[in-house]
Write a protein that binds this DNA or RNA. Sequence first.
DNA 1: GTCGCTGCAAAGTATTTGCATAGCC
DNA 2: GGCTATGCAAATACTTTGCAGCGAC
Lengths: 148, 148
Amino acid sequence: MTSATDSRAHDAEVSAALRARGGRVTSQRLILHRALRELDRHATAEELLRVASERLPNLSLPTVYATLELFEELGVVRRVAVGSGPVLWDPRPEPHQHFACRRCGRILDLDVRVRAGAAIEAARAAGHAPDGAQLLVMGLCDACSRDT
Amino acid sequence: MTSATDSRAHDAEVSAALRARGGRVTSQRLILHRALRELDRHATAEELLRVASERLPNLSLPTVYATLELFEELGVVRRVAVGSGPVLWDPRPEPHQHFACRRCGRILDLDVRVRAGAAIEAARAAGHAPDGAQLLVMGLCDACSRDT
DNA sequence: GTCGCTGCAAAGTATTTGCATAGCC
DNA sequence: GGCTATGCAAATACTTTGCAGCGAC
């Protein structure tokens, strides 16, 4: 559960991160950040617009996209692309991976850590500067595999 | 290098897979399969259309999409989604992972195996029927990290 | 001959861009 | 006050759908 105290503490956190980047602290950004934290699950840009619009009615989709990209850079959200349907934005801070159902398209969390060290090391050895990794497991979900 | 003999052998392979699925063996499918194998790297649907069109001028984009999806089901290609830009289709049969540059958007191969067993096991434990997994490492590529 | 596959055109969805204004620092 | 961020509208990029005709089996 997210309390008002938590919100304020997290506001301060993002604000600091934004300023450190030379960015500005706007109500759009703070409200999107809260919406993301309170949802606590991957959401599309449209979903976030809907939720955040309740608090800031004129919020626009381009702003949502721009803000999400900024947050990604700040490490506040992770972009999760599946290949069918829109990109998802995941605010969960704990390391976890995703499962994508090939039939119904649902994306589900897998609460498991994966040793991606070898892959990150390989990237570094190839001269790149990796800053994150994510695993996507695919197949049929619980429900879809039952009514094949 | 791909010889004419290889092509014929691989044609037979896909043909068998297609028939086993109850699908038909069409020139579009065979030519797309060859184009994929000969490229031997991830390509977009448009790129494949361009390459394959040289041999089959009336080939259409909807057919390319449909065929790639079919091939994915047959295990001939892997869908690689990055979240910016179009989906890539990867024909490389050897297990490998990908690196995506956040700045220039390039997707590069990492020739490394990852132990995804734990994640696949977690998916199965949650009741799903996983059939594959892929790791995406992100960051700045070789070139982009140099001219920051 | 049947039924799945294809091509064409069109629609649909997701995301980005251009530009004038608002508002943080 | 300067310069970034926003909102609006429009454009673009990618992918899917509908349907009539062709061709594999």
